[in-house]
């Protein structure tokens, strides 16, 4: 019998798979069977996740007893099934989920759509985050004038209860030492 895929080589392998409740029998040559196995590696997400979970051998023993108080799911069971029990699990297992999320998605922070009720809060948080990043960059580039300006913007956005960070104070000193008409490069960099 010839291989039914290529029709060239003799069929040496008899393969049975169940697809959609229908039994499928194939008679393949070794080469075509190999190709078929390659197709296997194109499997879906859950397979990927489970392989990542299996590979995560560095997970410390204490995770065995880590249990979500809300739904009862344990991290141990999650490692086997890839399924969390409830939204609270994300908080309970956070420490161990973060590296996993990073391996799956390459990132650990959502940047997409937000529910309508958290919209204002989230856009504010994202704006703050981007202002902070820009400020850090300005400091690194020693553009203290811009940094001071960004600091003021951040302060204006922040609620009064949040104390200003050390970082913000340190710029304050720089800004004082840096009059508008002096280029910031002239201020000592260790400020």
């Amino acid at each position: 019998m010839l291989c039914e895929k290529c029709g060239v080589a003799p069929a040496t392998i008899h393969l049975t798979t169940i697809v959609g409740g229908e039994k499928i029998e194939q008679h393949l040559c070794a080469a075509c069977c190999q190709k078929q196995k390659q197709a296997l590696t194109m499997a879906g997400m859950s397979t990927l996740l489970l392989s990542l979970l299996k590979g995560a051998s560095g997970v410390p023993d204490e995770t065995v007893t880590l249990r979500c108080h809300s739904c009862g799911q344990t991290f141990e069971v999650f490692q086997k099934t890839g399924m969390l029990g409830c939204p609270k699990c994300y908080e309970v297992f956070k420490e161990h989920l973060t590296p996993l999320l990073s391996r799956i998605h390459g990132k650990t922070s959502h940047t997409g759509r937000v529910p309508p009720d958290t919209f204002e809060q989230t856009t504010m948080a994202r704006r703050l985050e981007s202002l902070r990043r820009n400020m850090d960059r300005a400091i690194a580039e020693e553009d203290f004038e811009l940094a001071a300006q960004l600091r003021d913007e951040i302060r204006a956005m922040q609620p009064a209860k949040e104390p200003s960070s050390d970082e913000l104070d340190s710029i304050d000193n720089v800004a004082v030492a840096c009059p508008d008409d002096v280029t910031c490069g002239e201020v000592s960099a260790d400020a």
Partner: peptide, 15 residues
């Protein structure tokens, strides 16, 4: 929904 992680799903591959 979580501010950091977005919409939470049963499997972290969809979060």
């Amino acid at each position: 929904y979580d501010t950091d992680l977005g919409f939470l799903t049963a499997c972290p591959t969809n979060t």
